[in-house]
């Protein structure tokens, strides 16, 4: 299928969705339009609100805060995950001892940690960063751990026969392998960093996109909720595309990489 056709079909889905939404909320098909609009707003109202918000400076401040939290959560979580993942993969005893605890903490739904983090780190950005870190850390940790463990034994033997010592094996074999696993989970981990930030803001904050959505919800402003969600969705898609670009640059050596990214 060619690109133009795919794109036009994708646009068609959006137009159809909006049309159905518009018809159901402005005609008495499913009930009183005013009641419907209270619960579901209308596409034009939402778009108008979006446009108005984006003209002002307030939404940009919230967006900047959310993105700052996301960035910090990703950098700290990924850094920790790489370090600990590497360390555990090279120290079998350590990994074995901590395995049940790692699993237990990872199994915990992170939402329950949000109030605790708010208590510890306050209502500013750091409690949101902490929430994001707990999400990102484990994804990166498991991938790096796996990446180090799954290095092909033949490649390893070959590298040894080529005269590499432990330090050189780290640099030329373990590290690239671990990085490739980490990058393959980049979409997930960046997404989770954003989720951590927004959920954290939603549960208690004074700024950020999650906060604006929560505020709108508090006054039954459905249009405000939807416009907040729309802005969030657009940001997520943009960030995801950025990650794809980065991935394409960094993983040129991986077989099938070109075709895979082309499909995205």
């Amino acid at each position: 299928m060619n690109r133009a056709r795919l794109l036009s079909l994708q646009v068609l889905v959006a137009v159809l969705g909006l049309a159905v939404w518009h018809v159901l909320t402005t005609t008495p098909l499913l009930g009183d339009p005013r009641k419907m609009q209270f619960f579901f707003s209308t596409p034009f109202d939402v778009l108008a609100r979006c446009a108005r918000d984006l003209e002002g400076s307030e939404i940009w401040r919230h967006l900047a805060i959310t993105l700052t939290e996301t960035g910090l959560a990703f950098v700290i979580g990924a850094g920790g995950g790489i370090l600990i993942g590497f360390w555990f993969a090279r120290q079998e005893l350590l990994a074995a001892v901590f395995a049940p605890y790692v699993k237990a903490i990872n199994a915990l739904p992170r939402v329950v940690l949000a109030p605790i983090f708010a208590l510890w780190f306050g209502l500013g950005i750091w409690s949101k960063v902490a929430l994001g870190v707990t999400l990102v850390f484990f994804i990166v940790f498991f991938n790096v751990y796996q990446g180090v463990k799954e290095v092909s034994p033949v490649i390893l033997s070959n590298a040894r026969m080529l005269g590499m010592n432990e330090r050189q094996l780290m640099r030329h074999v373990y590290w690239p392998s671990a990085l490739s696993w980490m990058f393959s989970s980049l979409h997930t981990s960046v997404g989770f960093a954003l989720v951590g930030a927004v959920v954290g803001e939603y549960l208690g904050a004074s700024a950020g996109l999650g906060y604006t959505i929560q505020q709108a919800e508090g006054v039954f402003d459905v249009t405000g909720v939807f416009s907040g969600m729309l802005i969030l969705a657009v940001v997520v898609v943009l960030v995801d595309n950025l990650v794809t670009l980065l991935e394409r640059r960094l993983l040129v050596w991986r077989p099938g990489q070109a075709t895979e990214t082309a499909r995205r």
Partner: peptide, 10 residues
């Protein structure tokens, strides 16, 4: 080696 032993990232 019999198998592919090249480092795929180089």
């Amino acid at each position: 080696f019999q198998e592919d032993a090249l480092m795929p990232w180089k």
